[in-house]
């Protein structure tokens, strides 16, 4: 079914804290590790050890520089994966019904045995969340680790997406964003979590917590700084002569 459900029972998703993310790419690696050997086709690499390596990833970390009108520039690490949109264009464009959004938890998945690999869903996604696996010829995307979060064979602490479990900075949170009382919803409310490209009308479930404003340096904070001021402003001796001579030329 490529028609979207009118509503989902829950809205499972991620909350990504741009203030906390240190850009270590651990989530990228753990995602690739888990998802290449579990749900669906493996995430293949092409020319992995050659001159032009590339491969399928479900999660990638960008880094952006933000220069405010005043104050210092800020570097922001920016993990990006499927946002499990409420109004997911990738689902409705699918001609075969392979791409679908689950009614019970809102997770957007691909039924790989129905996927013809036309790529139209990747075309329709503004976030670059879908990649056509070059070895398998089917579309791969974040499953929110659907094979972990309900998996009773795993210890309870591990029943979260691999990226969330791995993040050493605690920058990734997982939960039901449809429940206003959930921890993730409270976090989004408190930190004014935002949507990416809201103008696309996709209504992403995943939210991003904006970086907190940086401290402003008002006074000299280094008590040694006055002592470190340059003492010899004017060169003397040979350098002084050289300086004057060059000046004259």
């Amino acid at each position: 079914m490529t028609q979207l459900p009118s509503s989902t029972d829950r809205k499972m998703g991620l909350v990504i804290d741009l203030d906390t993310c240190v850009g270590c790419h651990a989530c990228v690696i753990s995602c690739k590790g888990w998802n290449t050997e579990n749900y669906g086709a493996p995430l293949s690499d092409q020319d992995a050890y050659g001159a032009d390596p590339s491969g399928t990833f479900l999660n990638r970390v960008h880094s952006y520089e933000v220069r405010p009108a005043e104050g210092p520039a800020q570097l922001i690490h920016f993990p990006k994966s499927c946002l499990h949109c409420e109004d997911a264009p990738c689902v409705t464009v699918c001609p075969t019904g392979a791409s679908y959004k689950r009614v019970e938890d809102g997770i957007v998945l691909v039924n790989e045995s129905d996927c013809i690999g036309c790529g139209l869903c990747a075309w329709s996604c503004p976030y670059g969340a879908r990649e056509l696996d070059q070895a398998e010829g089917v579309m791969k995307k974040c499953t929110l680790c659907v094979d972990r979060i309900y998996n009773e064979n795993l210890p309870e602490v591990d029943r979260v997406p691999s990226c969330v479990r791995t993040c050493p900075a605690g920058a990734r949170h997982f939960g039901d964003l449809g429940d206003p009382e959930s921890d993730v919803s409270k976090l989004v409310a408190e930190r004014e979590g935002m949507d990416l490209m809201p103008e696309m009308g996709t209504k992403p479930v995943n939210k991003y917590l904006p970086p907190r404003p940086k401290d402003q340096i008002e006074d000299q904070i280094d008590i040694l700084a006055p002592l470190l001021a340059p003492v010899a402003e004017e060169p003397k001796g040979f350098l002084g002569w050289l300086d004057k001579t060059l000046e004259k030329l």
């Binding site: 790419h25 952006y64 520089e65």
Partner: peptide, 19 residues
């Protein structure tokens, strides 16, 4: 700016690609 949600904070520039 809208893609990252950071546009209101200043000029956004892609600093480093993911790979």
């Amino acid at each position: 700016g809208t893609a990252t949600g950071l546009g209101a904070r200043g000029a956004v520039r892609a600093f480093e690609p993911p790979h």
